[in-house]
Amino acid sequence: MDLPQIGYFIVLSRVLNFTHAARECKITQPALSRAIKRLEWELGGDLLLRERSLTQLTEFGRAMLPLLEQVQAAADVARDEARQLQTQERAPLRLGLSPWLAFPLIGTVLREVIASVRSTEFSVSVEAEPVMRERMLRGDLDVLVGLRADTLPERFNQWQLFSTGAAVFLPRDHLLAADELIHGSRLAESVLLGASEPEALPERILSQIVRRLGRRPSTPHRASNWETSLQLVRSGLGLGLGLSCWPTPPELVARGLADRLPDYEVVVETIAGRPQSRAVSTFVKLARASAWMNPANVP
């Protein structure tokens, strides 16, 4: 398939009329029909239902549309980048980071963005994901690295960076530290650290534990980010709930849960269709290309 073909189909899916679409694409109607036929053959299904006065997307067409829009958007970004390569335009990168993600690699990626796009000016905000998604919609933030939400507002582009399991963080000398995997039933007798935000990671893990245990363990203390949570664990105020990818301080250990909980997906998000600086597109590309987990684990 080629980009003009994809572009024709995207226009056609909007105007749903071959004559109007041909005019908008500045080609003849037979040429448009041929291009769509070729695209359909290559994709292996009819994209459109052609009736005399009515053109409609088929189910297959509806499924393919967002995928083809992504192909077109990626090429648009690449072209825009190529244009920006020639200039030294200011390149803002306003990054939002989840308070419950800890990754040294973010620093490495940011360093490379700056090395590659010299005019980068970046800022990092750490707030709860729903707050940051609101800020993105308002145009206050360009890109977010956070945990995948059950529902995503419209207009968001989202890519998975990696997925990681839940873990319990506890002092090295804690009774449960001897177990390789901790059973939920044993957590029921412990004090666990909750989070200030109801949708925050520890609360999401807790709700999974509650679902399996049938009751909520004691969570009198709450933290608002991963560092504070681990600080509270170090002070002996409870056991921390987090992700196995967090760096473990030397006096603590991280243990998986025996009752297999779902993995959590770490994603990067931008607003679809919004023009972005080369610093933003470079950040997204580097983040997506990177081996966040041990490369040996890559299949």
């Binding site: 958007a73 090429a75 690449a78 990696f162 290309a289 081996a291 490369p295």
Partner: peptide, 30 residues
């Protein structure tokens, strides 16, 4: 391919040239 797979291929076969991640096929489509 993303997620460090270029590194994986490069290391596995000891390749001496650049392996690039054509994220979202932007270059392939161009």
């Amino acid at each position: 391919e993303t997620g460090g797979r270029a590194r994986f291929v490069k290391d596995k076969y000891n390749l001496r040239f650049e392996l690039l991640a054509d994220v979202d096929n932007a270059v392939a489509s161009m």
